[in-house]
Write a protein that binds this DNA or RNA. Sequence first.
DNA 1: GTCATTTTTGCAACCGGTTGCAAAAGTGAT
DNA 2: ATCACTTTTGCAACCGGTTGCAAAAATGAC
Lengths: 334, 334
Amino acid sequence: MPVTLKDVAERAGVSRSAVSRTFTDGASVSAKMRRKVEKAATELGYSPNALASSLTTGRTKLIGLVSNNFHNPIFLEVFDLFTRGLQDRGLRPLLVNLTNETEPDNSVRMLRQYSVDGVVVASSTLSPAFARAFRDAGIPVVHSFGRYSSSPQVHVVGIDNVECGRMAARELLKRGYRRIGFLGGPEQATSTQDRFAGFMEELAKHPGLNVKHSYADAYSFKAGRAEMQRLLLNDAPVAEAYFCGDDVLSIGVLSALQDAGQRVPEDVGLIGLNDMEMASWENISLTTIRQPIRQIIRSSIELVEAMLEEPDRYPEARLFPCSVVERRTLRSAH
Amino acid sequence: MPVTLKDVAERAGVSRSAVSRTFTDGASVSAKMRRKVEKAATELGYSPNALASSLTTGRTKLIGLVSNNFHNPIFLEVFDLFTRGLQDRGLRPLLVNLTNETEPDNSVRMLRQYSVDGVVVASSTLSPAFARAFRDAGIPVVHSFGRYSSSPQVHVVGIDNVECGRMAARELLKRGYRRIGFLGGPEQATSTQDRFAGFMEELAKHPGLNVKHSYADAYSFKAGRAEMQRLLLNDAPVAEAYFCGDDVLSIGVLSALQDAGQRVPEDVGLIGLNDMEMASWENISLTTIRQPIRQIIRSSIELVEAMLEEPDRYPEARLFPCSVVERRTLRSAH
DNA sequence: GTCATTTTTGCAACCGGTTGCAAAAGTGAT
DNA sequence: ATCACTTTTGCAACCGGTTGCAAAAATGAC
């Protein structure tokens, strides 16, 4: 069934090399030869086997797209942008789901078996050990949404989570909140740790505040809701305003508050992080810190592509500024 | 850098075939030989090149996961389940994003170049022409969430959308609604067409009803919200109750209604379809028809796997029953 | 220990391409 | 037509594996 180089060569009455050359650009083929070959190829419906050619060229154009984040709707957009961006450059995403995976070795082995040209780790909750493991295996890797200081030898594209923490703190202070809460994502996630650090750092400049913090189990609606319900029960009265680890978490928190009869922002203020599409939905209208994910992803793709040419490129961190998107879950500055 | 079969063979002092055989199960190797080879392999950190072996075996274990639905949060769960399910069986998903793609030929060529063993088309909005094109190219294909009558020669796994339409109609009738609306997804989507057909069929049994229908541009929050806003403006008064094409659409509709001061379910009733996670969120609490996506996906994977053994398997449609999940967006039966 | 039978091993060809090299063909000047 | 020079072409080896086949080694019965 599958038609090969040889078939085309025979039909066109030329050598196999000639056929190969007409399909690799930059090769030396006369116009006449090209016409002959292309004619035979279309008649036979030939398209070259990318995997076979990868054997000699050493390039598969396969990029491992590695993530463990399949519960935060923002990652649907992330996958959308990554897959389209990669496709547009002739690269193919091999999706690897690392949910519940703690051992980098398996993934490394797997991606090596498929000779991926590079790997994008798209996650803010996956241990930096994964990106490092790929790097150590000699696979070009970019960690998108990662922490830039955790693995200086790995390329990182993302935001400055510490600064985002500060930004959230300033926003709450500006509005005169004094009993303030941090409701983070998973405590082990570097993004949570950094946001917390920046947040506390900024708050520390203003003495006399009452600050509490706690963590949800995951960046998810359910976890946010559960954690806020716990606070309402065990830790009442809750703070005047919360910085939540993430939008989807915020939305869970919002739902718990509404169920408990608390009005937002009159009784409790909320600021999230990401600016996922849902945050702008009119029945949610979440004030949040916008993370420029399109730019992050574009840059990640450009970087991984550059590494294909230059695998030992000196590692860099590409950080994109975030900005506050004001909607209706914080009271206005007085 | 990459260590090959030959390296291992030399190190172990055996033939290349011997090494190959220890890594293909079912091959004849003595225990002693296996030990020798495995020792050398681990010392060198060898893992076989799956792509090279695919050349002779004709199996890549690559499965094209094709979709155009990157805006409906339910598809994040779909991707999660597919990727994990495939991985668990030693298959690798090659993700293909067909957003804005109308021409099947490109995708077919691309997937052929990568010699995927099979394809799963996961979409209820993608034209059946895609699944057919893969089939015609000789690639085993399963259309998940597809319409079973559109391409009898293609395997389909999903639900009976016509029956779901009937089910929604019965649910509304049971509750005494008489001014009834259908607010569908994209009119070209087979899922929308079928749900509409079933819905109207059931309603037709009850004369004297007042039934309207219209379509949103996409299965998305934004589209649902926009369409309901249009109805509120141009087509008031709106119906007593709507069957919406999909949950995320329903949530958009809900938001438009709330903004317009309409209470749900007191003024307007709503029933969706899917039972996505968000439908159960307490601030939404959408009554909906549950589509058993775990089962659909599991079955799709089993089916595509079976087709690897038997590519010309007689085509079948696997349909899973849906059921109504009652929450709080329909008034109770009187 | 011999012999027939089974298991294990290596050789060599092959999978579908690419590529260095040298021969063949084309080009232009004389 | 000849020659020097450039471009195009085909040969053959190779990429990293697999596999049919026959030879070698192991097994077991006698």
